[in-house]
């Protein structure tokens, strides 16, 4: 895991992996929009059907994708509890003081669960199918118009790229320092939260010192390789918006339209 660049990239040779990162970022935006437009179980059925098809096409094991929901389990739990007890709508099933469980509340909570899960699953699918480098590239291209507002797009992109590049290096270093401090008798897993936080100081301080030293050397290395030599910087890798991306974009548009129609109750009976 630590050997991989960083993140949760799951390499397969699927068409989803081959999409332009910009398309995938766009897909992320569409999914977020869809999750908030959807307000009925029918709409969520559409969302999950779409998601399921994408997972199948991406050739990533469904279980691998579902695992990502774990990270927001606590958030789901809290919002469900709040909504079950305080959302007051329809037939009352149980009541005590101001707290009521109602049919409407239960139904609404169900939707909240589906919405939160959809948000996490669809965005995870982006990070599962693209490397951090691809995403940085995509983001840089998206931000390019800001150049005209004198926003330093390229510098921001380099900062992101360097940050990604140094995450594994600094993790390795943290391990080394932790071991070195343990060898000197430091205890990291005893005492209350405050004591534990304090015990981390002997790791954090050397880590920061080393990070600054690295930054200093890196600055020389960037200069030596002519960073900022010209405004007309070129790129070896050019992102291409191909037929795959066009198809994907059309599918996304269709998907969002369906969800919006369902919200407007356009299909009469639903």
């Amino acid at each position: 895991m630590r050997n991989v660049a960083f993140g949760q990239y799951y390499p397969t040779d699927s068409p989803i992996h081959k999409l332009d990162p910009r398309t995938k970022l766009f897909a992320g935006a569409i999914s977020i929009a869809a999750a908030f437009v959807a307000d009925s179980y029918w709409a969520y059925l559409a969302c999950y059907a779409f998601l399921f098809i994408v997972i199948l096409v991406s050739k990533i094991p469904v279980f691998q994708v579902l695992k990502t929901v774990k990270s927001i389990f606590a958030i789901i739990l809290i919002s469900v509890i709040l909504n079950v007890f305080f959302h007051d709508e329809g037939k009352v099933l149980w009541a005590w003081w101001k707290i009521k469980i109602t049919v409407g509340g239960l139904l609404y909570s169900g939707q909240i669960i589906l919405r939160l899960m959809f948000l996490v699953l669809s965005t995870s699918l982006i990070t599962l199918t693209s490397t951090p480098t691809e995403l940085t590239d995509g983001l840089e291209r998206f931000l390019t118009p800001l150049k005209y507002l004198r926003f330093p797009v390229h510098d921001v992109a380099i900062i992101m790229s360097i940050a990604l590049r140094f995450i594994p290096t600094l993790m390795e270093e943290t391990d080394k320092i932790t071991m070195a401090q343990k060898a000197r008798g430091a205890k990291f897993d005893v005492g209350g939260p405050l004591a534990r936080a304090k015990a981390l100081l002997p790791v954090l301080i050397p880590l920061f010192v080393s990070a600054f030293r690295r930054a200093d050397e890196l600055a020389f290395a960037l200069d030596a390789r002519c960073y900022n030599a010209t405004e007309a910087r070129t790129k070896m890798k050019v992102l291409r918006f191909g037929w795959r991306d066009l198809t994907a974009t059309l599918c996304l548009a269709l998907f969002l339209t369906v969800v919006i129609f369902l919200r407007l109750g356009f299909f009469g009976l639903l």
């Binding site: 660049a5 960083f6 490397t131 951090p132 480098t133 380099i158 790229s161 360097i162 990604l164 590049r165 890196l218 290395a221 960037l222 390789r225 002519c226 960073y227 900022n228 030599a229 010209t230 910087r233 070129t234 790129k235 070896m236 890798k237």
Partner: peptide, 16 residues
């Protein structure tokens, strides 16, 4: 500077 070897090698000429 980059997490992928060929990107790192390309960095210098890109700058130029």
């Amino acid at each position: 500077v980059a997490s992928i070897i060929e990107d790192d090698v390309a960095f210098g000429p890109e700058n130029l």
